[in-house]
């Protein structure tokens, strides 16, 4: 089975790096960027992820804006939103905009892995 390629987009550098390393240990191919602009510059040129883990609140571009561009340009990429927001409304709103799912911070790691695998399954079933 191919390794699942994941891009983490989060302005919290330590969070993104620690999460990426933990997922690499479990066999995922990881990349991280720390802004929405960097994510949009990387996707399709240097980075071809199956799943994007996208922080909802970032200083340069919001997760909503980045999600909208990704789904417009690369509809086959599945996006899981990461949110530290207390209300789940941000997550459910992003699902209306095309996100596969959302997960609250601090992340339940098992739950995250399951959601990534489900998102990947959806991507390959849609592509074939």
């Amino acid at each position: 089975m191919d390794k699942i390629k994941i891009l983490i987009v989060d302005d919290e550098v330590e969070f993104a790096e620690a999460l990426a390393e933990r997922m690499e240990i479990r066999g995922f191919l990881m990349e991280t960027v720390n802004s929405g602009a960097d994510a949009l510059a990387a996707i399709g040129s240097t980075c071809f992820p199956d799943v994007v883990l996208l922080d909802l609140k970032m200083p340069d571009m919001s997760g909503f804006e980045v999600l909208t561009v990704i789904k417009e340009k690369y509809p086959s990429i599945e996006v899981i939103m990461l949110t530290g927001h207390g209300a789940a409304s941000g997550g459910s709103d992003s699902m209306k905009k095309g996100a596969f799912d959302f997960i609250m911070k601090p992340v339940d790691f098992k739950d995250l892995i399951e959601k990534i695998q489900d998102a990947y399954q959806k991507k390959i079933s849609t592509s074939s």
Binding site: E12, F15, A18, R22, G84, M104, K105, P106, V107
Partner: peptide
């Protein structure tokens, strides 16, 4: 929550 997330992953 952001701080907790970093501590959690670390």
């Amino acid at each position: 929550k952001n701080h907790l997330a970093i501590i959690n992953e670390s």
